[in-house]
């Protein structure tokens, strides 16, 4: 009886330990692999620290091998969010003043985007007017 209890106890301990170990194992990662992946960036960071004020464009202009030999992600300049991902110019172009108003409101009053929408509206309005007059003329003519 004692043996059975002992074996059961050991088994329970083993099972619970292995169950617990599963989640703990998830917190392990290959540090050396990550260090290798980020090694080029560590060198670049040291260079920037030793050359205060230097920028990426200056390094690219000087053909600095630290950046020219690296596959750089240049997406640090964000593009604005626009309503439904449609360019602001098109909103102004197709929806006129309503489109301009929508862009103004949606982009949190972004001057650049609202100006783009305004230009869309300004360029499309004469075209619509000409098309409207031309259409009316053709309608009356026939």
């Amino acid at each position: 009886m004692k043996k059975v209890l002992l074996i059961t106890g050991v088994l329970i301990l083993f099972i619970t330990n292995s169950l617990f170990a599963n989640d703990a194992d998830l917190f392990e990662y290959d540090e050396s692999k990550i260090n290798t992946e980020l090694n080029e960036l560590n060198e670049l960071e040291n260079y920037v620290n030793n050359n205060q004020g230097i920028t990426l464009s200056e390094m690219l202009n000087n053909k600095n091998s630290l950046v020219t030999n690296m596959a750089l992600d240049m997406s640090f300049c964000l593009s604005d969010d626009t309503p439904m991902g449609i360019p602001s110019f098109c909103w102004g172009c197709f929806f006129g003043p309503v489109g301009v108003l929508m862009v103004w409101a949606f982009t949190d009053r972004s001057k650049k985007q609202t100006t783009d929408a305004f230009w869309g509206c300004a360029i499309s309005t004469p075209i619509y007017v000409v098309l409207g007059i031309g259409g009316q003329f053709l309608w009356n003519w026939y």
Partner: peptide, 16 residues
Amino acid sequence: FSIKAKGFNGKSQLTM
């Protein structure tokens, strides 16, 4: 601060 990033596409980015 510094942020060293290597994306899914293998491209690197440093921000300081």
